[in-house]
Design a protein around this nucleic acid. Structure first.
Lengths: 255, 255
DNA sequence: CGGCGCATTGAGGGCGGTCAATTGGTGTGG
DNA sequence: CCACACCAATTGACCGCCCTCAATGCGCCG
């Protein structure tokens, strides 16, 4: 099914909305003005999508990539059971399907968890970046590698740790990613998804997710009311989670 | 700690040992003779490593990549508990740390499960490939993306499925990857690792791994004696595992 | 006010973990 | 050729984390 777009904005010559992405890339390496222009110039249009809509389905073969500008999305697959299992979360500044450029066919689906705004980048434009700017290409490659590193970290969490530790780790990761995107205020961030959805990312039921969240609250580690999540004790939370942000690769170095 | 090499062979002008890699890449796209030469020319030496040795440790910053020519290796991390948790398996033809090229710092360790032979490729050579041959660069990028797709599939297995289904899926995956590398005979392949090690990849203890393996044997799905694994009923095993090899991206298409 | 979605709480059960002992195959040394 | 060590595979007993099923609260919005 094609994207259900409420509104489409043509163009994209300016960098409006690309700040979270550029912030993240600049945490990793110096980005020239020409490279920022190449990125914003690659955007052919922006799209708005309502909450709980599929952006891509398994086995789709897209001819363009999507960059998330606003809202949250999730990677998921359907098991024989039926209900979707979350395999990844995207926040503003994350590419949704950059991998589809070398990969072609989607091996999982992607849907919106909230209303979203997306920037669309044709594969053709990425081809040109690869031909003309190997350095920027390397930074994009790197971004997909961090995506893989996140999956591996989730695998570690889900496969080998208790629910309490896993949830602590997920919270540390999301807070760090949101901070990198410039979307936190002091110790507080907005988490516009349900406990059930976060739990599914950890292979937990909503019931047990809730019990773990309450435990973290009771231990004075977090406050979570509505969509507003505050980290009350970052150091202790990191210790419980064994959280080391190195896998997010936020260190500046020539690439 | 540096690689403990038993023997080092300088050179690599020929393609000896690269067959499993080239087989896999050619399943995905046409590879020109020049591209094959570029790959084999990028190898600066080969190295032999005994079993149960670390090739790379967490936080290492390698200046070269390693391609596995013979033997099996595993990605792992150490949790606070102490014992290693397997996050990925490499078989001949797999890059061990291609990601280290854009990424620099290792976010996990890699060790040999068996005696191994490795081809070493300097990052400098990959730089040149990226500058001069965007198509080959895209195929290498693709290979790291498949690596990420495998992690995500493991996440699905480990987080959301029973041990029996997860083990079936792992067996289907490994058999398919070994077949692609040209390392199967009819329905039989060699699995030179212990049940304990395979189980760790699924977050299972050796005790439960053994019970699951026996169950699969008893149901007439597999035969597994020593290192020799035979698939007795591929279709039924795939059905139990919900195995769809699409995520391994073995479809030929222009990239 | 009534409906809906999400959070919350309770009771009971099962998958897989933990601990521990035994078997069996292989290699090594006497 | 056998005694022994060692490691992986195997088996048994028991337990706990998390699932399942179910009901209740509760805020939000029409």
């Amino acid at each position: 099914m094609p994207v259900q777009a409420a509104r489409i904005h043509i163009g994209g010559g300016d960098r409006v909305g690309l700040e979270p992405l550029i912030r993240r890339l600049e945490r990793r390496d110096v980005l020239s003005a020409a490279e920022k222009d190449a990125l914003s110039g690659a955007v052919c249009r922006t799209v708005e999508v309502a909450a709980d809509r599929d952006i891509l389905r398994e086995h789709d073969v897209p001819s363009e990539c999507r960059l998330l500008l606003e809202g949250w999305t999730s990677r998921y697959t359907l098991l024989a059971g039926g209900q979707p299992q979350i395999l990844g979360l995207q926040i503003p500044g994350d590419f949704i399907d950059l991998q589809s450029f070398p990969r072609r066919r989607m091996d999982h689906a992607i849907s919106t968890l909230t209303p979203c705004r997306l920037a669309v980048i044709p594969h053709r434009a990425l081809h040109e970046i690869m031909d003309r700017n190997p350095h920027l290409a390397r930074l994009l490659w790197l971004d997909t590698l961090v995506d893989g590193a996140i999956s591996r970290r989730w695998l570690l969490n889900v496969g080998h740790r208790r629910a309490r530790e896993a949830m602590s780790h997920l919270i540390c990761e999301l807070f760090t990613r949101l901070r990198t995107a410039g979307m936190t205020k002091a110790r507080t961030c907005q988490v516009p998804v349900t406990q059930t959805e976060l739990g599914s990312a950890l292979g937990l039921t909503s019931v047990h997710t809730n019990r773990v969240v309450q435990e973290l609250r009771h231990d004075g580690l977090i406050t979570w009311r509505g969509t507003s999540l505050t980290i009350e004790d970052w150091n202790r939370l990191c210790r419980i989670a064994e959280f080391d942000p190195a896998y997010l690769d936020l260190e500046r170095a020539p690439r």
